[in-house]
Design a protein around this nucleic acid. Structure first.
Lengths: 233, 233
DNA sequence: CTGCCCTTGATTTTCGAAAATACTAGCTCT
DNA sequence: AGAGCTAGTATTTTCGAAAATCAAGGGCAG
């Protein structure tokens, strides 16, 4: 007889802790959990229905990703946002993305080209469906992330890919903050297409310049439209 | 009356978990815990005298640093070593260190110069005391780490500094592996001094070239003398 | 004899209570 | 009145047992 009838539902990952980490990550990135907010275990226990220990493990993982900060013996809080942090983050992301795209262009074979083309194609379909504010669409966010991941997918550096992913997620929170205030979304379609063309055309210098500007422009927009929300104004 | 009489001894950090993480980190880096070794909780409980939960938290932290790998539902093991990993790591370290040294040279003020000079001076004193195999000396390792940290200390990027520290630690394990096999330690005194001079003299291009070569040379030596120890030989 | 399923044992993961620590407020002494 | 101490409360951290999951060995059908 099957004993898994009462098994807890685990949507992402095999363990409850990784599932909760996933949910909290979404909440933090979408600012459902506000920057700087203190995370008390009793409250979290109610929200997520897990015990101290399990929550603690989930939080520890998020600390490693920079979405939560821990002060020993004084609990956890959602990582605050600030212009200084955004600028720091942006510079780190440009440094790493530029290097990884260059390496991908050097190493990438047929599979890589196919992945890049298919991911930008998917992005185009989603953008075509809802021309207005596609950037708020969660589906677009996934496709957007996957396009950028495909560009660096052939770099051959697991270490930097892991770091890149974590920085991308931290940046996503800033993108979400600015999306609420920005008058209308910037049109990124052209930028993405140019990036794809430079990558497939093996024009490394141009691709690097484009990705650097792409990341920097997004940050500049965030600063422009959301700076009053930040603690260091 | 003071109630701390029975307080557990915590050498590093305030919590037991961070203390244990610190001890395990040392053990892994020094290969007292061998690469690839599976870490069973029952065994760890005996070695470190802590409970499941506390050990789990310590391990989770080490996973984030890349010194331990976790397979969900299948436990933890010490991160394996391989030439591929070492090469990947080296390339990442060069990318980041080069950038951070350049920025430090741009931003660094008097305090930075003083920190660089004082840390290389301390390194020189230790090297002078035991001319032979100073690289095995734990005191030298600390001074060596602090010298390299001082070089990038004025970069102004907390994010990349944190990443840099974690990569440095991962690399230290490879340095330790090769130290046991290497006929005699390479003479790094001159390299460090040249680095210091280029940094203080604000010659960014030269400092970047020197640091890149410094890191690359160390890796080349590890590969040369220890490659047969690695799984991917 | 071979392959599949189920039981059994080992190991990890989760839980909530108990201990340790930090914070708050009220009191005393100067 | 103000500073420093003390007791009480809130919160985090740690523990070991209990539940869930995985891995291996034995029995049964084909």
């Amino acid at each position: 007889m099957n004993v898994t009838a009462f098994k807890r539902r685990k949507e992402f990952g095999k363990t409850l802790a990784s599932d909760i980490a996933h949910r909290m990550r979404s909440e933090i990135v979408s600012c459902g959990l506000k920057p700087g907010e203190v995370l008390k275990f009793d409250a979290l226990r109610l929200s997520y229905g897990a015990s101290f220990t399990t929550l603690r493990e989930a939080l520890t993982n998020l600390v490693a990703e920079g979405l939560v900060v821990a002060e020993e013996q004084r609990g956890f809080k959602v990582a605050p946002v600030s212009i200084a942090d955004l600028i720091d983050l942006t510079r780190a992301r440009i440094l790493i993305d530029v290097d990884l795209i260059r390496r991908s262009i050097e190493n990438g074979g047929d599979d890589w080209e196919i992945a890049v083309i298919s991911s930008i194609h998917r992005l185009g379909i989603i953008e075509g469906r809802a021309v207005e504010d596609y950037a708020d669409n969660p589906e677009w966010k996934v496709a957007h992330r996957e396009f950028h991941e495909s560009l660096v997918g052939a770099c051959g550096s697991p270490t930097l890919l892991g770091i890149r992913q974590s920085l991308f997620e931290r940046a996503e929170r800033y993108r979400n903050i600015s999306a609420r205030l920005r008058p209308r979304p910037r049109d990124k379609v052209g930028e993405h297409r140019a990036l794809m063309k430079a990558a497939i055309g093996r024009d490394a210098d141009r691709a690097c310049e484009l990705i650097a500007r792409h990341i920097q422009t997004t940050t500049d927009n965030v600063v422009k439209y959301a700076s009053e929300l930040f603690s260091d104004s």
